[in-house]
C-alpha cells in the first residue's frame, strides 16, 4: 500500500445543485460533504434520481455546482477556467460513463489513444500503453474493432481503458456495469480492483448493482441529494 493512502484528495463542502432554478427547481444535490482519501475504492449508491450522476459530474468538473466547493488534489476547481478545467480533467481524471460514450467512428485502439494524442505523447509510448491497457481489459485481439463491432461489456472495457490512458489519479465511473451481464461485470470489477491496487488510482463509482456494492470498500448512500450513510467495510 502506498504511503499517502490516508491523505484526503477530494473534498466536497456543501455541494448543492439545483436544476431549472427559475422554472421548476430540482434539488439534485443538497449540501453534500464528502472526503475521499487517496487510493479509496468507493461506491456511491442510492435510488434512481438521488443525485449520483450529478455528484460525479460535479466532482469531475463536467458540471458546476450551484453552491458549495470541490477541491481535488489541492485544487479548488471553481477557480479553474473552462479551458483549464478541461486540461485538468485530461491529466487527472478518467471518466467512465454509463453509456460507454465511445467515439463511434474510431476503433478501440484509437478511442484509447485519443487522450494521449491530446497530451502530445510520442507514438511509440502511445502504442505500447494502448496495447497494455487493452490487453489488461482482455481486448488485445479487438484493438481494431469499432464500437459497433463490440459487445456492451467489451465497449465498457474499452471505456475503462480509455479512462486510464492518461494515467489519471482519479477514475470516476457512472454505473459502469449497468449494461453488463454478470460475467462482464465480474471481469470489469477485477480489472478496476487490480488497477486500484497496482496503480493506486482512486476510484469512485456509482451503482445500483449489489455485486458491485459488495466489492467496494466504502459505500456512500445518497437519498434525495443528501448523504444518507457512509460506511467503510
Amino acid at each position: 500500500m502506498s504511503n499517502n493512502n490516508n491523505k484526503t484528495v477530494i473534498t466536497t463542502k456543501g455541494v448543492t445543485k439545483v436544476y431549472n432554478p427559475k422554472t421548476i427547481p430540482v434539488h439534485a444535490l443538497d449540501g453534500v460533504d464528502l472526503e475521499i482519501k487517496a487510493g479509496e475504492f468507493t461506491a456511491i449508491v442510492g435510488p434512481s434520481g438521488s443525485g449520483k450522476t450529478t455528484l460525479l459530474n460535479a466532482i469531475g468538473g463536467l458540471d458546476r455546482p450551484t453552491e458549495g466547493s470541490i477541491e481535488i488534489a489541492g485544487v479548488d476547481i471553481a477557480t479553474l477556467s473552462d479551458g483549464k478545467m478541461i486540461e485538468f480533467r485530461r491529466n487527472n481524471i478518467g471518466f467512465v460513463f454509463q453509456a460507454y460514450n465511445l467515439i463511434p467512428v474510431l476503433t478501440a485502439k484509437e478511442n484509447v489513444e485519443f487522450v494521449m494524442l491530446l497530451q502530445g505523447k510520442k507514438k511509440a509510448a502511445m502504442d505500447s500503453r494502448t496495447k497494455e491497457l487493452l490487453e489488461s481489459v482482455g481486448l488485445g485481439d479487438k484493438m481494431n474493432n469499432r464500437p459497433a463491432q463490440l459487445s456492451g461489456g467489451q465497449q465498457q472495457r474499452v471505456a475503462v481503458a480509455r479512462a486510464l490512458a492518461s494515467k489519471p489519479q482519479f477514475v470516476l465511473a457512472d454505473e459502469p456495469t449497468a449494461n453488463l451481464d454478470s460475467k462482464s461485470t465480474a471481469n470489469l470489477l477485477d480489472i478496476m480492483a487490480r488497477l486500484n491496487k497496482e496503480e493506486n488510482i482512486t476510484f469512485i463509482f456509482s451503482t445500483h448493482d449489489q455485486r458491485v456494492i459488495d466489492r467496494a470498500r466504502r459505500v456512500v448512500t445518497l437519498v434525495d441529494g443528501k448523504v444518507f450513510s457512509d460506511e467503510y467495510k
Binding site: 469531475g60 463536467l62 473552462d82 479551458g83 478541461i86 486540461e87 480533467r89 485530461r90 491529466n91 471518466f95 460513463f97 460514450n101 465511445l102 467515439i103 485519443f114 487522450v115 491530446l118 480509455r162 492518461s166
Partner: peptide, 9 residues
Amino acid sequence: VLLSIGMKR
C-alpha cells in the same frame, strides 16, 4: 464526449 475526456474547445 470529446470535451469530457479532455479535448479543449
